[in-house]
Write a protein that binds this DNA or RNA. Structure first.
Length: 784
DNA sequence: GCCGTAGGACTACCA
DNA sequence: ACTGGTAGTCCTACGGCG
């Protein structure tokens, strides 16, 4: 029977290590169990000596034995190692630790820190979401590549609503009043209230939970989607289940998983996929951009429309009023979650397959863990040794010793016309592949020599560049398929695959320099950036030789001032440069822009151009803005809005008079109190506990006030605060948006609007006096 | 004790 | 909890003044 591997679980029963495989066969899901033993590897020691030590230990650890010899490659050097089998996975590091002390200095230990599930998947060459076969004894007998299978998983999304007239809902007091659920066929609104097509009426909360349980059991989605459901919905349901003594199969034998810093909530029968951490990964990879990771904002960012949903804090009012719209509002969340899931699930599935991680684990993984997983898989497949994770002191040392990064050219501030932007396609990946950069190709002998002085062998291909190149080759092939494919569903899958491959490929350089990486190599990471700097600088020089002025460059991109030159001249330059580059490297045309604004740094003394801050108008009318306050969430919306208008006016119109009018009008409105309070909110995330702050800034003061009012505030909370008229210092004046009664117009004009717009207007020779008073005579004091 | 400022703490951005 | 390079705000400590 052929089936698709959905997930793997480990359990210890009847003194046996059991791996439980969750499979999908046709439309059904089935479970298969098989025994599997944990082990680690030992080298540089005779069998007799190792056996003696193991015999001594064997009395305390049942089943401990040398199972035999295995071969492993260290680069292109082969070594024979003893495979030591242990009774339980927990005992692998323990036994290794004790053995190491017994035979200190006379043996080397390997692969003692491989997660047990990962070990199982690798040893059986199993591909998550790939095809597997098994026989009557439940032994896996054959496999196929992950790319071959076309898996279709049925997803359902759910959401709970809690009665919370006093703000934050508390499990022991506030009941769940509504649960909504949506899958590909049906929608349910389960509640004691409401009437209509999809309404399932229940008599009380206990029945509500039971009904939800039976609906999930009946619909039985492969994947159950929620939004922040690991942190909120499931723990809350669990709390109510305990209080009301409900039997709920859905959460029976659930497991709380902690992976790195992320919490996961693993269900027994369905794959629970919380979209929140998944979306967060996408934001860190630059796949989507949102100011806040709320369901509302993410929905808007992805689909460009407001979703039908109700403010959670207002839900109880609609409930008390028996509002007719309650049904649609509550279903709005489940529908939004489902729709986000339709986009994110295919991508998560491809990330899982590409990284050789199960879907559930992939949804909780960081980029580094995904790269690591794929490298481990191929290392095991080709019998390369898997390096250990570094110990904490090693991590510390690596962190204290960072490597030199990219080159950024200092721009001359000003307003420019006709710019061509070029960039290296996948600069760091192409460097790793071109120069065979790998911890095991590093050599003192012959090889590619990096500008930082390290050399990499040409006669032996490293695992890292090989695995990376395979990702890029696959991606290129998929991009070709995308061009031909007409079927909507297949196209979606192909695009998701391409994106997953891109995410993984772009993370390899970071992984080489990541302090907790198994394949960390200072020399490799340093060489990647050194070659990167060399290539961008050489491109700048060559552009100058060809008569271009180079306005700006950052890491892998360069901005050419075209002057009297034509587009053809730019393309000719590209061709010329590409002929001189290694085969896998390529400089590409990003776009042509008709106008650009670069500004000065805010500095009292020097007047230098600001890096990583510019705005450009493309030929098609679209605007590209980088670094300006208007793209930063820790500036008020009012300041961002005005800065945006000013920039757009300058890019499209070019006259300072219009820009000045925009600012004057805005200042007037602020002074007259015509703008709503939430436009003055400044958002700042707390990255540590309130108590741990040395510098008590406005966001910390506002956070304390918020906490004193009973709201949960801590590491990770996004604080939205307003600078009010109440208090002396800026921090004194900071109140959470929910508590603020007013805003301080002077602060917002002086500290938000003026700094944001002046840096742009300066480039049009407008000074502050002229802006504020219309003349160049009066000082700022006269104005306030 | 008050003032002004350099340096540090901190966040969020670009690539 | 993938990397380094960068701008900018606000706090805090410190030195000068008297």
């Amino acid at each position: 029977m052929e089936s698709i591997l959905l997930d793997v679980d480990y359990t210890y029963e009847d003194e046996k290590n059991i791996m439980v495989l969750h499979l999908k066969e046709g439309k059904k899901r089935v479970i298969k169990a098989m025994e599997y033993m944990p082990y680690f590897l030992v080298g540089d020691i005779s069998k007799e000596e190792l056996e003696n030590a193991i015999d001594l230990l064997g009395r305390e650890v049942p089943e401990l034995k040398i199972e035999g010899k295995v071969e492993r490659f260290f680069g292109d050097k082969k070594k024979e190692l003893w495979k030591v089998v242990v009774d339980t996975p927990q005992n692998v590091p323990k036994v290794k630790h004790v053995l190491k002390h017994m035979i200190e200095g006379r043996a080397s230990f390997y692969e003692f820190d491989i997660p047990f599930k990962k070990r199982f998947l690798m040893d059986h060459k199993l591909d998550p979401l790939g095809k597997v076969k098994y026989n009557e004894k439940n032994n896996i007998t054959s496999i196929q590549g992950a790319g071959e299978g076309e898996v279709e998983l049925i997803a359902g999304a759910f959401d709970i609503e809690v009665y919370n007239p006093e703000g934050i809902p508390r499990e022991e007091r506030d009941p769940i009043i509504i649960i909504t659920y949506k899958d590909n066929e049906k929608e349910y609104f389960i509640s004691t209230k409401g009437k209509g097509k999809n309404v399932v009426n229940v008599k009380d909360e206990k029945e509500l939970l039971e009904k939800f349980d039976s609906i999930i059991k009946e619909s039985n989605p492969d994947v159950l989607l929620g939004y922040n459901s690991s942190q909120f919905d499931f723990p809350y349901i669990e709390g109510r289940v305990k209080k009301l003594h409900v039997d709920m199969e859905l959460i029976e034998r659930r497991r709380k998983i902690r992976k790195g810093l992320v919490n996961g909530y693993k269900l027994r029968n369905n794959i629970h996929l919380d979209l929140y951490p998944a979306v967060r990964l996408l934001t860190t990879m630059g796949a989507i951009n949102v100011q806040r990771l709320t369901l509302k904002d993410v929905y808007k960012a992805m689909f460009g429309e407001e979703k039908l949903m109700v403010d959670r804090a207002e839900m109880w009012k609609l409930w008390d009023e028996d509002d007719d719209e309650l049904l649609d509002y509550a279903l709005g969340d489940a529908r939004a979650t489902y729709r986000i899931g339709e986009e994110v699930l295919p991508l998560e599935m491809e990330i899982a397959r590409t990284s050789k991680t199960t879907l559930f684990d992939a949804s909780l993984s960081t980029a580094g863990q995904l790269v690591e997983s794929r490298l481990m898989y191929y290392a095991a497949l080709e019998k390369h040794i898997i390096p250990p994770k570094p110990k904490e002191n090693e991590v510390k040392q690596r962190l204290e010793n960072p490597i030199e990064g990219a080159f950024v050219k200092l721009p001359e501030p000003g307003i420019y016309d006709n710019i061509a932007v070029l960039d290296f396609r996948g600069l760091y990946p192409s460097i790793i592949i071109s120069y065979n950069i790998d911890p095991y190709t590093l050599t003192d002998g012959e090889g590619y020599e990096s500008p930082s002085g390290y050399k990499f062998r040409k006669d032996y291909r490293g695992l890292v560049p090989r695995v990376l190149e395979e990702l890029l080759v696959t991606r290129a092939a998929i991009k070709k398929e995308i061009k031909k494919e007409k079927d909507k569903e297949k196209l979606k899958r192909l695009k998701a695959r391409s994106q997953a491959l891109k995410i993984l490929a772009n993370s390899f350089y970071g992984y080489l320099g990541y302090a907790r990486s198994r394949w960390y190599s200072r020399e490799c990471a340093e060489s990647v950036t050194a070659w990167g700097r060399a290539h961008i600088k050489s491109a700048i020089d060559k552009a100058k030789e060809d008569g271009f002025d180079v306005l700006y460059a950052d890491t892998d991109s360069l901005f050419l001032l075209m002057g009297k030159k034509s587009k053809e001249d730019v393309l000719k330059f590209l061709n010329k440069i590409n002929e001189s580059l290694p085969e896998k490297m390529e400089l590409e045309l990003e776009n042509f822009y008709t106008r650009a604004v670069f500004v000065s740094k805010k500095s009292k003394t020097e007047k230098r151009g600001a890096k990583k801050k510019y705005a450009m108008l493309a030929e098609d009318g679209s605007i590209k803005i980088r670094g300006f306050e208007l793209v930063r969430r820790d500036w008020s919306e009012i300041a961002r809005e005005i800065q945006k208008k000013v920039l757009e006016s300058i890019l499209k119109d070019g006259r300072k008079e219009k820009a000045i009018a925009i600012v004057r009008d805005a200042i007037k409105r602020i002074k007259e109190g015509k703008e709503s309070l939430d436009k003055f909110a400044i958002s700042t995330q707390l990255n540590k506990k309130i108590e741990n702050y040395e510098a008590i800034g406005p966001e910390v003061v506002a956070a304390k006030r918020l906490r004193d009012s009973g709201m949960p505030v801590g590491k990770g909370t996004l604080i939205r605060y307003v600078i009010t008229k109440e208090g002396k210092s800026i921090s004194d004046k900071a109140y959470p948006l929910s508590m603020a009664k007013n805003y301080d117009p002077d602060y917002y004009i002086k500290n938000q609007i003026l700094p944001a717009v002046m840096k742009i207007l300066k480039e049009l020779s407008v000074d502050e006096e002229e802006l504020l008073t219309g003349t160049k005579q009066q000082g700022l004091k006269g104005f306030f």
